[in-house]
């Protein structure tokens, strides 16, 4: 089906006027330049991670590695800490995203029905939590009471429903014509079955989008790890990375002993760059993988007709 859409599109391009062709070219050139600008920091980080300490401290590295070396990557990958945290982050992101998607679907679906009894009230209950939060102290007390502190659960469960994402999803659900569902319900399907067999397959772009948001949210969340995790083997990757980056850069001289500062000078920028790269790669790969759902989503329209 996606194939069919594609061929249709190419057939359209034949009829382009010169003005439109020029627009296409200019558009592409602008985007390409923007893309290069946005790629720059990555090129810079990769170059740094592969350069010698001297080349970096003297500021010679911009686009290309100077005094090429791979020792930093070997160093980072040798760290037990890195792999441990990597595993934790994978587990948290996989379980978290899956659970959060389910939670969001079953919450967003009822709220997307205009005729739902008490819809406005329930929606406001959720929206309100987006605005007000109890703050750090009560949250800590709660996690402690639930025995979540210093367990993997604290990284997953409290983030299982992101109201922001849920509202996005609700908005996407609202776009689906009521008629499609009603026909299913006439066939005797219950609301859960309608949701899973009719609504969700029609919402793949939306699910891919908020799935991505959740995955990135779980992967990038370093704060929870900072506050609630004290056992190093349970520390997620971004918390580990955060500590690696900030410890080396934001040393406040007043609280540090001579030995601490000596240590900090050993933490070379190259190691940081390599760790950042390694920690980013998995989550960066998620998007290209999900992109096919953005195209496939075109099917939604065809069904609609």
């Amino acid at each position: 089906m996606a194939q069919a859409v594609k061929t249709k599109k190419t057939s359209i391009t034949y009829g382009l006027s010169t003005g439109e062709k020029a627009f296409g070219i200019v558009n592409f050139v602008i985007l390409a330049i923007l893309g290069l600008l946005m790629l720059f920091p990555f090129v810079n980080l990769i170059a740094k991670s592969l350069s010698s300490n001297t080349a970096i401290t003297t500021g010679q590295v911009t686009f290309w590695p100077v005094d090429f070396q791979t020792g930093t990557y070997r160093f980072v990958l040798k760290q037990g800490q890195f792999w441990n945290s990597f595993r934790i982050s994978i587990v948290v992101t996989l379980c978290g995203t899956f659970g959060a998607l389910i939670m969001s679907c079953i919450t967003a679906y009822p709220l997307s029905k205009k005729w739902l009894w008490g819809r406005k009230f329930f929606a406001l209950i959720f929206v309100f939590t987006m605005l007000f939060s109890g703050g750090m102290v009560p949250s800590y007390i709660l996690m402690r009471a639930l025995n979540f502190v210093n367990t993997i659960w604290v990284l997953i469960i409290p983030a299982l429903l992101g109201v922001y994402n849920m509202i996005l999803l609700k908005n996407f659900f609202e776009e689906i014509p009521e008629a499609v569902e009603e026909s299913a319900q006439l066939d005797g399907a219950g609301s859960l079955r309608t949701l899973f067999s009719i609504v969700l397959p029609m919402s793949l772009p939306a699910l891919a989008t908020i799935g991505l948001f959740y995955a990135v949210g779980f992967w990038d969340n370093y704060m929870t790890g900072l506050l609630y995790i004290t056992t190093p083997s349970l520390r997620p990757l971004q918390t580990y990375l955060y500590q690696l980056v900030t410890e080396a850069t934001n040393i406040s001289a007043e609280t540090m002993t001579a030995e601490d500062m000596e240590l900090a000078s050993l933490n070379t920028e190259a190691i940081r760059a390599a760790t950042i790269m390694l920690a980013c790669v998995p989550i960066m790969c998620v998007y290209p993988f999900l992109q096919k759902y953005f195209v496939k989503g075109m099917r939604v329209g065809s069904v609609k007709g």
């Binding site: 800490q81 500590q243 080396a248 240590l263």
Partner: peptide, 25 residues
């Protein structure tokens, strides 16, 4: 992971500020 956290014998727990490396290792 959670199973591996349990150790045998009497263990003294020290809570300290974050380090660049894990002292346990």
């Amino acid at each position: 992971l959670s199973a591996g956290a349990e150790e045998e014998g009497r263990v003294i727990n020290i809570l300290l500020n974050a380090q660049a490396v894990d002292l346990n290792e």
